[in-house]
C-alpha cells in the first residue's frame, strides 16, 4: 500500500460522508421523537379526558371541567378500593423489604450450590406469566384453606416483590468492597456490629430503591391480584371491574392524580437518595418485573 490513507471511492470527497451522517442523525432524532409521541399519547389522552365535560369518552371535546376530580371523594367504592390497595401495598413493602434484604444478606454470606439453586427458585414467580402465577396461587391458597382476602393478596404480592428486593440488594452487596467489612472486623467490631455500622449504611439506598419499586408494583398489580381478591378489591381490580361497563371519567381523574403523585414522589425520593449517597450509583428504578407497573 503506497498511501497510508486508504483512498476514497472515486468522486467521493471526504466531507460527503459527514453530510450523509448529518441526514442520518436528523432521521434518528425524528424517529426518537415519534417513539415518544407514541409512548405519551395514551397518557395525554387519559389526562385530557379527565378534564372533558362528558361521560362519553370520545371526541368531540365537550368542554373543560374539574367535576370528575371533585366527585372523587364521594365515590365510596373507589375510596374503599384505594384504601384497601394502600393497605396491601403498605404491608407488602414492609414485609418484602425486610424479608428480601434478609435473604440477600444470607445469599451473599453463604456461597455454594444450594444457595444458587435457592436464588434461582425464588425468582421463578417473576419470570412466569402473571396469570399462571395468579392461578397457581389461587389453587394453593384454596388447598390450604385460606379465605381470599387481605392475607392472600399480600402473600401473592410477596411472591414477586421479595425476589426483586433480594436481587437489587444482592447486586449492591456484591459490588461492595469486602475490604471495608474486613477492616471493620480488624478494628474490633464483631459480625453483627460490622453489619450494622458498615454494611447497612452502604446497602441502605438499594433497600430504599427496592422498597419504592415494591410500592408501585404492589399498588398497581392487577393480573395476579385478580385471582386472589375476595370481596374487597384493590384499586386496579376495582377499575378492571368498572371497565366491563365502560368506566366513568372519574377513573381517568383518579389515575391522573395517582400517576402525577407517584411520579412526583419518585422524583423526590430519587433526589433524596442521590443527595445522601452520590457515590453509590443511581438507584434509578430498573424494571425487573415484567408485570404492569414496574417502577
Amino acid at each position: 500500500m503506497s498511501s497510508i490513507a486508504r483512498p476514497y471511492p472515486a468522486g467521493r470527497p471526504p466531507h460527503a460522508r459527514s453530510l450523509g451522517e448529518g441526514i442520518g442523525e436528523l432521521l434518528a432524532r425524528l424517529g426518537l421523537l415519534a417513539v415518544f409521541l407514541f409512548l405519551y399519547a395514551p397518557l395525554v389522552t387519559i389526562a385530557l379526558f379527565a378534564l372533558n365535560d362528558s361521560t362519553i369518552q370520545a371526541l368531540p371535546w365537550a368542554g373543560f371541567t374539574t367535576r370528575w376530580f371533585e366527585a372523587l371523594p364521594a365515590d365510596r367504592s373507589l375510596v374503599a378500593a384505594v384504601r384497601f390497595g394502600l393497605t396491601v401495598a403498605g404491608i407488602t413493602v414492609v414485609v418484602a423489604s425486610i424479608v428480601g434484604t434478609l435473604f440477600a444478606v444470607i445469599l451473599h454470606g453463604v456461597r455454594g450450590r444450594s444457595s444458587t439453586v435457592l436464588q434461582a427458585a425464588i425468582v421463578i414467580p417473576v419470570v412466569v406469566p402473571g396469570l399462571v402465577l395468579g392461578l397457581s396461587l389461587a389453587i394453593t391458597f384454596r388447598s390450604l384453606g385460606l379465605q381470599p382476602g387481605l392475607l392472600t393478596v399480600v402473600l401473592g404480592h410477596l411472591t414477586f416483590t421479595v425476589p426483586i428486593v433480594t436481587l437489587l440488594v444482592l447486586t449492591r452487596l456484591n459490588r461492595l468492597d469486602p475490604a471495608l467489612a474486613q477492616a471493620s472486623m480488624d478494628l474490633g467490631a464483631g459480625p453483627v456490629r460490622t453489619f450494622l455500622h458498615v454494611t447497612c449504611p452502604q446497602i441502605r439506598t438499594a433497600v430504599l430503591a427496592a422498597a419504592l419499586l415494591t410500592l408501585t408494583l404492589s399498588f398497581d398489580e392487577v393480573i395476579v391480584t385478580y385471582f386472589l381478591v375476595g370481596t374487597e378489591p384493590t384499586l386496579p381490580v376495582h377499575i378492571w371491574a368498572q371497565t366491563r361497563f365502560g368506566f366513568t371519567p372519574s377513573i381517568n381523574a383518579v389515575v391522573t392524580l395517582i400517576g402525577t403523585l407517584s411520579v412526583v414522589l419518585v422524583v423526590i425520593a430519587l433526589r433524596i437518595l442521590e443527595r445522601r449517597s452520590g457515590a453509590s450509583g443511581s438507584p434509578a428504578a430498573t424494571p425487573i418485573d415484567h408485570r404492569e407497573g414496574a417502577p
Binding site: M1, I4, A5, R6, Y8, P14, H15, R17
Partner: peptide, 13 residues
Amino acid sequence: IDVSGVPPYRRDV
C-alpha cells in the same frame, strides 16, 4: 496527504 475527515477505518494506522 491531509487526512482530516478520513475516518479511522480508512487509515492505514
